[in-house]
């Protein structure tokens, strides 16, 4: 592994100062489960490594008003065992509980997952389904933006909008209410120690009569960033949620994956079929949750 200087700041201010000083030559280490492997294999060669994992203040799950705020350094283990997340945000609880392995979930953080923005990042798919926003901080001040915008951004790397002196401190989203059901399904070669083949999320909000007023469907590993199933969402909104209505979207999912995959190697084409199986599982989970809830 290439030589580098190592810093483990104890406060956020100290971390921001270091980032301001070293800029592009620095790499941020959160859980380390991606970057340490990349450095060991020589794919990344930072001159300075800033280990922010000791900023314990950035590891939290907090409810403020109608929103849930999660500190960037919250591990997948903390997220998947948080009672509120488990009860109210199943899409995230399920995604977090399927990341890597118990060992990886104890190290890996949600902020690291979003900043690395891997094609197969389960945290990215779940947070996109929730229409989450991220908070970026630097000595110049704080800014926040929707996750979609963050992922589209051209920052210090082409992966996201993070500038060289910035650190992600938080991700937040609207807490799903009693009329909202969410679900996540990971399709992979094994139940553990397997990278997602499809990591798909779904959110459906209904009114008192069971009419869909909000839908969000995002499929990870189907495009550079979680594939947005717009046509399927539009098909649901304004209609009463039923298994028949949900299954009517399957050809739309097929077509969306086909469009995304048609210029890619033939070996990913099976996903236009498997995405339908994945969403059938999600439909069952969504209906179960909606049926178990009162609409009054």
């Amino acid at each position: 592994m290439k030589a580098f200087e190592f810093f483990a700041p104890k406060t956020l201010a100290e971390a921001k100062g270091l980032l301001n000083q070293y800029g592009e030559s620095a790499a941020i280490l959160a859980g380390g489960t991606d970057i340490v492997i990349e450095m060991n294999e020589g794919h990344r060669k930072p001159d300075v490594v800033i280990d922010i994992k000791k900023l314990k203040d950035l590891a939290y799950v907090r409810i403020e008003g109608s929103k849930i705020h999660i500190g960037a350094l919250t591990t997948f283990e903390m997220i998947s065992s948080d009672p509120v997340i488990r009860e109210r945000v199943r899409v995230l609880a399920e995604a977090a509980s399927k990341v890597g392995s118990p060992q990886i979930r104890s190290l890996g953080t949600i902020g690291g997952n979003l900043a690395t923005a891997s094609v197969a990042g389960d945290g990215v798919s779940a947070m996109m389904t929730l229409n989450a926003s991220v908070v970026l901080d630097s000595v110049r001040g704080q800014r926040q933006m929707p996750l979609a915008e963050f992922l589209d951004g051209q920052g210090v790397s082409s992966r996201n909008a993070l500038l060289a002196d910035e650190i992600m401190t938080e991700v937040f989203f609207e807490m799903p209410d009693n009329h909202t059901a969410t679900a996540f399904y990971k399709l992979a070669k094994r139940k553990s120690l397997a990278i997602s083949v499809i990591g798909a999320g779904m959110l459906v909000q209904v009114d008192g009569a069971g009419i869909c007023i909000k839908a969000s469907m995002r499929g990870g590993c189907l495009a550079r960033y979680p594939l947005h199933f717009k046509a399927a969402e539009e098909h649901l909104i304004g209609n009463k949620i039923s298994i028949d209505l949900l299954e009517e979207t399957l050809p739309m999912l097929h077509d969306a994956v086909y469009e995304s995959a048609k210029s890619r190697p033939w070996s990913v084409f099976y996903k236009k079929e498997s995405v339908q199986g994945v969403y059938r599982k999600l439909f069952a989970a969504i209906l179960e949750q909606l049926n178990g809830k009162s609409y009054e």
């Binding site: 380390g32 340490v36 492997i37 060991n40 890597g100 060992q103 990886i104 120690l193």
Partner: peptide, 30 residues
């Protein structure tokens, strides 16, 4: 495996099982 996929390098770190091939030495401080 050197990439957190096999678990052979597992130790108990602050009470949790972790794979030490994906941790820098500095992370072990304190």
């Amino acid at each position: 495996c050197s990439e957190g996929e096999c678990g052979a390098c597992t130790v108990i770190f602050n009470g949790d099982a972790v794979t030490t091939c994906c941790m820098l030495a500095g992370q072990a401080d304190q």
